[in-house]
């Protein structure tokens, strides 16, 4: 190197360096503006996400809610009909391990309506009485434990249901005409 480095020789490098610094500062500014405040609160994620996940609404009502009104007949006003006639039988019966929604569907709408206005006309929970509901558990399919009472299509009384099942008809007498859902083990019916 015969002579030292002159300013003229490195001017373009300084300009390039300024450009690089501008880009990097821009990146840091963009980062500071974009990264959510709660990021890193509990770990390498948005802390608010935990609360967003917690705050999702509950859809499936739990039996505790049902018990608020349907626990016993004591809460019943004198002029009202018994609101859960089968309660005791259901609990002691073979369907006692089921939850309300298994047969009644989700009751969120019913609960919300009654909570808003308890005097409102009683919302009748629509039961899905079609045999398909019962057959979810009681249809004979491979791997289903035989100790469950299995629907026997060969029984004379069941003959009409077979037609129903084949054609997926909507209107049909439910299984509970003969097998009451709350007392499926009723000795009268097993005869």
């Amino acid at each position: 190197m015969p002579q030292g480095i002159r300013f003229k020789d490195i001017r373009h490098i300084i300009h390039a360096a300024i450009l690089i610094v501008v880009v990097m500062v821009g990146f840091l500014v963009a980062r500071a503006l974009t990264v959510p405040k709660s990021f890193g609160q509990y770990g390498h994620y948005r802390g608010d996400s935990i609360h967003e996940n917690q705050d999702l609404s509950v859809i499936l009502e739990n039996p505790e809610t049902c018990r608020e009104c349907h626990e016993s007949e004591l809460k019943r006003k004198p002029d009202e009909p018994a609101i859960w006639p089968g309660l005791d039988a259901w609990r002691k019966g073979k369907h006692g391990s089921l939850t309300c929604a298994n047969c009644h569907g989700n009751l969120k709408e019913h609960v919300e309506r009654r909570r808003k206005d308890p005097t409102s006309e009683t919302f009748v929970v629509t039961k899905d009485n079609r045999p398909q509901l019962c057959l979810l558990c009681h249809h004979a399919i491979v791997a289903r434990p035989k100790v469950l009472p299995i629907f026997d299509p060969l029984r004379e009384e069941h003959a009409s249901y077979l037609e129903v099942l084949k054609e997926e008809q909507e209107e049909v007498i439910g299984c509970n005409t003969c097998h009451p859902s709350y007392r499926p083990h009723d000795p009268k019916l097993s005869e």
Binding site: N53, Q54, D55, L56, S57, V58, I59, L60, N62, S97, L98, T99, A101, N102, C137
Partner: peptide, 23 residues
């Protein structure tokens, strides 16, 4: 699956556990 995180923090069971008829 979140184990129904929004339910368990409210003291409820996950929906699948709640509904399971046989435990």
């Amino acid at each position: 699956c979140t184990w129904c995180y929004h339910r368990i923090v409210k003291g409820l069971l996950p929906a699948c556990v709640e509904i399971c008829p046989t435990g």
